[in-house]
Computed example of a mutant assay.
Amino acid sequence: MTPADLSRTVAHAVRGAVEEGELPVGVEQPGRVVVDRTRPGGVGEYATAVAFPLAKSAGRPPGDVARVLARRLARVPGIDRVEVTGAGFLNFVMDRPSAEALVRDVRERGHRYGCSPQAVPVADAATRADVVRRAVSRLGGDPDTGGLRIAPVPEKEGDVVAAYGVDAARWAMLAVPPHETPVFGSRALLVQDESSDFFRVRYAYARTRALLRNAAALGFRPEPGDTEHTPAADALLRALADHPLALEAAAHHRAPERLVRRLVRLADALLDFQYDVLPKGDEKPSAAHRSRLALAEAAGTVLAGGLSQLGIAAPERL
């Protein structure tokens, strides 16, 4: 179950509780349930505060409302358990995502995996304001609504596109919140090693293409399937499963820097996982290798799609 699925599942549980009389008929049901990653030290992977606005219209304590929903949600496939914390926060401990289902979903959607249906293609950009507004539009947010303050590139930086290249300049412009001044520097943008977030994200995509080429030379192709429970595989699965929620949040808050952080996390997970993909030594390609390759390929697809939403190219070789 993806975070977007979880959001819809919680909304469905609210409707069911109202229809079956567990919550009053007059409860104002949310059109959209916000589900966030649990903060460090919290319970489970995701949490929502949906019980608080429901409690206000129901005339009941948030904790009571949360416990009604928790009983329903604990029975949903994909959710291991639901805990109520504080005054009424719902916390979700999820089952491990299905690698096969996740890979098939990415394959079906391609670069559109996790993207808002409201996302629109936009023309090229020149100033930082153009870069940010176009990225917000690609995410499905509205860049023209008031309140979006965009700090320009400082004049002292000169022509950053000429100095760093289009892609690196855009990365720097989008890596911090729009109202903050972007930071440039050759070490962060031009260095070709894994100390650079910008390099690491594009390198991770290039590694997925190299894995596919090397697998083809060994005579096998990617095939969706379950993967073994290893720390690297589980981390990559979680990063992929979280991606739709991250995109939704980035669009809602008009915050492309959230996508930047998400791509860095996904790239790091892929770079840790890559060593388990191909056969080693005298090993023959097996179903396990094919499913690992399919998972790596899916990660590459999502990386390329995320870079595209930022207006940045995804090179097949670095």
Rank of each mutant, 00 (worst) to 15 (best):
T2S: 11
T9D: 02
V14R: 08
R15A: 13
G16R: 13
V18T: 06
E20M: 00
G21C: 02
P24T: 12
P24N: 10
G26H: 14
Q29M: 13
P30V: 07
V35A: 12
D36L: 10
E45R: 15
Y46H: 13
A47G: 03
A55V: 04
K56T: 14
P61I: 09
P62A: 07
A66D: 11
A66P: 12
R71T: 04
R72D: 08
A74S: 14
G78A: 02
R81K: 15
E83P: 00
G86I: 05
G88I: 05
F89V: 07
R96N: 11
P97K: 11
S98W: 03
E100R: 11
L102P: 10
D105W: 04
R109S: 14
H111E: 15
S116Y: 00
P117E: 09
P121R: 13
V122H: 08
D124N: 14
T127N: 10
R128W: 01
A129D: 15
D130N: 00
R133Y: 07
R134G: 10
A135F: 05
R138D: 09
P143E: 13
L148S: 15
K156A: 13
V160I: 06
V160H: 03
A162V: 06
G165D: 03
A169E: 10
A169Q: 02
W171C: 11
M173W: 08
A175W: 06
P178Q: 04
H179I: 07
H179G: 10
P182L: 03
R187Y: 09
A188F: 08
E194Y: 05
S195T: 15
Y205V: 03
R207W: 03
A210C: 09
L212K: 11
N214G: 01
A216Q: 12
A217Y: 01
A217C: 00
L218F: 00
H229F: 10
A235Y: 00
A239Q: 03
A239F: 00
L245D: 10
A250I: 06
P256Q: 09
P256H: 06
E257N: 11
E257R: 12
V260L: 12
R261Q: 05
R265V: 08
D268H: 15
F273I: 05
Y275S: 10
L278I: 02
K284A: 15
P285C: 04
P285E: 09
H289K: 10
S291M: 13
L303R: 02
G305P: 04
I312G: 01
E316M: 02
L318R: 15
